[in-house]
Amino acid sequence: MRIHSLRILRNVPGSLLVGSIVVGIFLLLAAIGHWLAPYDIEQFNMSARLSPPSPEHWLGTDRYGRDMLSRLMAGARETMVIAVGSVALSLVLGLVIGLISGYRGGLVDGALMRTMDIVMAFPSLLLALLVVAVLGGGTLNTILSVGIVFTPKIARVVRSAVLSLRGAAFIEAAILRGESDTHVLFREIFPNIFPPLIVETCIRLSYAVLVSVSLSYLGLGAQPPTPEWGLMIGKEKSLLLSAPWVVLVPAIAITLLILGINMLGDGLREVLVAKKSHD
């Protein structure tokens, strides 16, 4: 499905467009949600507790009378900060490890990859659980733990991109004219690994949201009174049948965010793969 209306957007796949818009909205909410929120997110209002959606409280209130809409908008920042932060961390670490591993090869590569294998011997959630248990809960620790857990995957993608480029003639040409290793890695190889890296980053982002929100749900991630969406669901799950909006509002928000990121990733993959086959 392609958008045919605007000339500039002629070749943009629908998924990319919709995905970017959705993610864009959440990013916006993350940035200014706190200010836009109609109510103070920490304000208890026991008289209005557990009230269903109404003109005063568009999305209802929770067990302490806090306005769900405000908590939702504020929570965007929490969720996005953790997700983006952890992916950024894993990108930095993964890039360094992947570039060195792929370019140097030999023992260094072997040692690094074995270490990555050990980390990957766990399902992500489990490992994140363990790390966060050691470090304690909280936003920063969640970022650290999820970042560490995802580093091997990024490292693998970077490494395989580097490996496939290493045999390319232009790299050999660079070596033959005496370019330093640093130059080859950062000026020649690095600009060419963007396409697979970007797609993988998007995938990681969607998993980062999933894992961090799951951690908060289990009580090991963000801590109260932070309006993090997973935490909101985890704390209130007993209210599911009696006051469903308390659980469903953050649930739908999470789903939409992950959906948006996935669509963005799909769209990017289409565009970047299409560019290759065009040649």
């Binding site: 969607s206 999933l210 929100v213 799951s214 749900y217 997973g230 669901i233 985890g234 799950k237 649930a251 739908i252 999470i254 789903t255 992950i258 959906l259 996935n262």
Partner: peptide, 8 residues
């Protein structure tokens, strides 16, 4: 399906 977390 892949976007909806298990706890949702």
């Amino acid at each position: 399906g892949v976007s909806v977390p298990a706890f949702v």
